[in-house]
């Protein structure tokens, strides 16, 4: 697809340094190995989609990127900084990485606007007024301008997830991580969230997205990665990934997904 090739060329031209570098990463939960020898680079401006059956380690992998989970072996390097136990200012690093969760995780005791401005005021030291300005801007972007003073419990799932995306955007991160953002939504609300994510993608936001939404992957991704049992099994651009899957496991997975 023309758009994908174009953005790949742009990414390579502008920035040879990977924003996120994952090298030989292994992780265990006690005796169970959840990540096996993962190697992955994400460049600024790229949209990477990770798919796979449940238990494949895809959520664990992206949670390692902002160190919500710790890897035991291998290197994870964000913007040139290696993530280890000794890393100073993990909070500062995390503020450059935005994340959206399957369960939205909005702060229930705060209004929508308060949710958005909490981190910019505390972490970026912005004034209340400036933070609200930014908040209003991103609320408009996700199309929920008139809900600023509502509480999360008063919103639908789709609206809550859009607020969550706005909240992540208010920190103006270098990359957005999505952990199955639409999996907990009713079908009719999935589209409104995917629309926003597509819009962000066309505006050049670097994204790493774990999702089952293959239509979205086809349209938006520069690269699609298939993970199974803790390993990266296949990696390709969307056209080749969906039309010519090389690995048997990928083929089986795609068959199951599309037969639904």
């Amino acid at each position: 697809m023309h758009k994908n090739e174009e953005s790949k060329v742009v990414a390579c031209e502008l920035n040879r340094e990977a924003l996120i570098e994952i090298r030989n990463v292994n992780k265990w939960y006690n005796d169970f190995q959840v990540l096996k020898d993962i190697n992955l680079s994400v460049y600024t401006g790229e949209r990477v989609v990770i798919c796979g059956p449940s238990g494949s380690g895809k959520s664990t992998l992206i949670r390692c990127i902002n160190r919500l989970e710790k890897h035991q072996q291998g290197d994870i390097i964000f913007d040139g900084i290696e993530l280890t136990d000794e890393v100073k200012n993990i909070d500062k690093i995390r503020s450059e990485i935005g994340m959206c969760f399957q369960q939205f995780n909005l702060f229930p005791h705060l209004t929508v606007m308060e949710n958005l401005i909490l981190a910019p005021i505390s972490v970026r030291d912005l004034s209340n007024a400036k933070a609200r300005e930014i908040g209003a801007h991103y609320l408009e972007k996700v199309k929920i301008q008139d809900q600023a003073d509502k509480y999360p419990s008063e919103l639908s799932g789709g609206q809550q997830q859009r607020v969550a995306i706005a909240r992540a955007l208010c920190m103006q991160p270098r990359v957005l991580l999505f952990d199955e953002p639409t999996s907990a939504l009713d079908p009719e609300m999935i589209a409104e969230v995917l629309d926003i994510m597509e819009k962000l993608a066309t505006e050049g936001m670097t994204m790493v997205c774990v999702t089952h939404e293959m239509g979205f992957a086809r349209k938006v991704a520069d690269r699609v990665i298939f993970m199974d049992a803790g390993q990266i099994v296949e990696e390709n651009d969307p056209i080749n990934f969906f039309d010519n899957p090389k690995n048997k496991r990928t083929q089986k997975f795609l068959k199951q997904i599309f037969e639904h």
């Binding site: 902002n66 919500l68 909070d91 500062k92 690093i93 995390r94 503020s95 450059e96 990485i97 935005g98 994340m99 969760f101 369960q103 939205f104 995780n105 909005l106 702060f107 909490l118 981190a119 505390s122 972490v123 969550a164 909240r167 992540a168 920190m171």
Partner: peptide, 15 residues
């Protein structure tokens, strides 16, 4: 308190 609240707080870079 649900774990997700801790996740979201950390992910935003809050101390």
């Amino acid at each position: 308190v649900s774990k997700g609240q801790f996740d979201a707080s950390k992910a935003l870079g809050l101390k």
